[in-house]
């Protein structure tokens, strides 16, 4: 009993999180999923002549002469229009989707926290100007924003590629992906800024901040030592809930053809190419069901982890 008093708020939150069976299970599922996605195809790991079933050895880019094969013992998720093994493509795509979600969320985290903290801590005129700006951006449709941003970045890249220094294919691909991260992050920081600003504003009025000021602490130190640590919980919770929405947004962009470019794939671009294959004669359901199911499972696990974290960090939750 006594030991509990010595725990920091973060340690207590972690304790509550572990006790929440649903959230802990979701975290486990998520970790297993990430491990599988990173290691697939398993054939790469094992020496050639082992007992692994053939289905575990297909590479995402190897083209075969059996396009649109339904799921079978050899291809567990079936094959796509070019006869590529869908399972390994889905794993490859999930890797990219997770990366997009993480980096995009990180970008919006940096912008949102900086913006919100400065507005909330600065207060007064700064605050109202910065938050009115957020209001204005809120009232614009994000679709337009994202399209303008991503096409602008792509056009710049094309110019560089054609220019005298000539980027290599691989670099251009990486830069295009980086542009996508920035674009996604840049349109999803608004809510984060609002949340952080609200928290900072209420913390700023607390007596311990004044005490710190009187003791001669600089503003930078106060923000770093006293304000931000108190906002971490909220930020982490919101971050876990933001990753799914950024992954979803990337799949939407892939559907527009602005997302990850082939031969790279994300879950979104796999679903989009599956959606193109709908026709009344043959139903290639596996092209859309499997990427969709993996996406839904990932998002579901992330949502439950996020919910668990939110409950764990909620000070009212301690009983």
């Amino acid at each position: 009993m006594n030991e509990r008093l010595h725990l920091s708020p973060n340690q207590r939150a972690w304790r509550r999180f572990r006790r929440n069976r649903g959230a802990a299970a979701a975290l486990l599922v998520l970790l297993v999923l990430i491990a599988l996605v990173l290691l697939w195809p398993l054939g790469k790991l094992a020496p050639a002549a082992t007992v692994l079933p053939k289905a575990m050895t297909h590479l995402p880019d190897s083209i075969s002469d059996t396009p649109f094969a339904p799921p079978s013992w050899e291809h567990w998720f079936g094959t796509d229009a070019h006869g590529r093994d869908l399972l390994s493509r889905v794993c490859h795509g999930a890797r990219i989707s997770l990366l997009v979600g993480l980096v995009g969320a990180a970008v919006s985290l940096v912008i949102g926290v900086l913006w919100g903290a400065v507005a909330g801590y600065g207060g007064g005129r700064w605050d109202s100007v910065m938050m009115r700006f957020v209001d204005v951006l809120y009232a614009m449709p994000t679709v337009v924003f994202v399209i303008v941003l991503v096409t602008a970045i792509n056009a710049k890249l094309e110019k560089w590629q054609a220019g005298p220094h000539g980027l290599s294919e691989r670099h251009a691909q990486l830069l295009q992906m980086a542009g996508l991260f920035v674009g996604l992050g840049a349109v999803s920081w608004l809510t984060m800024a609002r949340i952080v600003r609200g928290q900072v504003l209420s913390l700023r009025r607390r007596p311990f901040i004044d005490a710190s000021l009187v003791l001669g602490a600089s503003h930078a130190r106060i923000v770093r030592r006293h304000i931000l640590p108190n906002v971490y919980g909220v930020i982490i919770v919101y971050l876990t809930l933001m990753i799914p929405s950024i992954i979803l947004y990337e799949s939407f962009l892939s559907y527009l053809g602005l997302g990850i470019q082939p031969p790279q794939a994300s879950l979104g671009s796999l679903m989009a190419s599956g959606a193109e294959q709908i026709n009344p004669i043959r139903i290639y359901w596996w092209l859309i069901v499997f990427p969709g199911a993996v996406l839904a499972l990932t998002l579901l696990a992330l949502t439950f982890v996020g919910d668990g974290l939110r409950d764990a960090f909620d000070p009212r939750g301690e009983s």
Partner: peptide
Amino acid sequence: VICVPSLVLGPM
């Protein structure tokens, strides 16, 4: 239902 995007639900 939140986690299944309309891009999957619609075609299904």
